[in-house]
């Protein structure tokens, strides 16, 4: 029982917790319950009447080919973003570890993009690759690439994936650097003496030992790609061309605030909430039972 604090006043502990509880209640529980309520209602076009419709909104959403398309787009977008962000951050971290002089400067510079807001990151990429005025668009066209993300699905997807991944690389880089530093030097030396060449050493010793970090980042990056990339998509493609880059989060916004189908939008966000809870549960379960080596 040592270390347990006993408050003299029974009310005090609740008062101390109150601000945090209030914030959670106002910004999470209340909107979440509203969404849950709305997802089972239908509103008339003028917002004068609401009727309870049970699970009808959910049924309609899940049967909607546009929604299913959005699920597919989200899957492609999230996996590509997570994979790209991880695949680029790892070599950067490995190289930054090898730098002898000015290690700190390299690291700082590589971490900076994380400080850029998603919408700004999107705008940066938009300007660079805008078919009308982008520098890279000019270079691409000069080299015979028919570059037009405003018309071509694949290119639009590529652009948002690149912008979203670019921002996340810094975050992953930071974790990979920490993960690499946690690997004892003597293991690498032992592997060198055991006759493993550089790449072999990496794939048989370093990479397996980074597995806990990589798995953690995979979950975090997927969650990021799912929910935190609204700004990027809104700035770069607005879900277009057509619905080629309309992810689930973007569709919630579009249906709710642009098309004013509140019931459908609420149902979608409830589904999304379920997905977040699922992903968070996986993450927590993982963090709790972090793979312990050695």
């Amino acid at each position: 029982m040592s270390g347990r604090v006993v408050f003299p006043n029974k009310l005090l502990p609740y008062l101390l917790l109150a601000p945090q509880l209030a914030i959670t209640a106002v910004f999470f529980y209340w909107p979440a319950s509203q969404a849950l309520k709305q997802s089972m209602q239908r509103e008339d076009p003028f917002g004068l009447q609401t009727t309870f419709v049970g699970l009808a909104n959910f049924r309609r959403v899940l049967a909607d080919p546009n929604y299913l398309n959005s699920v597919k787009v989200t899957a492609v977008f999230s996996l590509s973003t997570a994979f790209l962000a991880l695949a680029l951050a790892l070599p950067l971290a490995v190289m930054a570890e090898k730098v002898v002089r000015g290690k700190g400067i390299y690291r700082t510079l590589l971490i900076w993009p994380y400080a850029v807001a998603p919408a700004i990151a999107g705008m940066l990429w938009l300007f660079l690759f805008n078919p009308a005025m982008g520098t890279f668009s000019y270079l691409l066209r000069a080299n015979g690439v028919a570059w037009d993300p405003l018309l071509k699905d694949g290119q639009a997807m590529g652009l948002v994936v690149a912008a979203a991944a670019w921002k996340q690389i810094s975050y992953n880089f930071l974790f990979f650097v920490a993960g690499l530093q946690a690997i004892p030097r003597s293991l690498i030396e032992a592997a060198a003496i055991d006759g493993a060449s550089g790449p072999k050493r990496f794939w048989t010793i370093v990479f397996p030992l980074l597995a806990p970090t990589t798995f953690f980042l995979l979950v975090v990056n997927t969650v990021y790609a799912f929910f935190d990339t609204f700004g990027v998509i809104h700035a770069v493609t607005q879900g277009g061309p057509g619905k080629a880059t309309e992810t689930l989060v973007y569709k919630v916004y579009n249906d709710g605030f642009v098309n004013l189908q509140l019931g459908s939008s609420a149902a979608q966000s409830v589904i999304l909430m379920g997905v977040v809870i699922l992903l968070t549960a996986i993450q927590f379960r993982y963090v709790e039972r972090k793979v312990h080596y050695g």
Binding site: P184, E189, D194, A196
Partner: peptide, 25 residues
Amino acid sequence: AMVFQNYALYPHMKVYDNMAYGLRN
């Protein structure tokens, strides 16, 4: 071959693979 102070065993490999690693390479 070197024996390290902290042994430097590969934590993700079984004892057998730890010993076989150098030969496989």
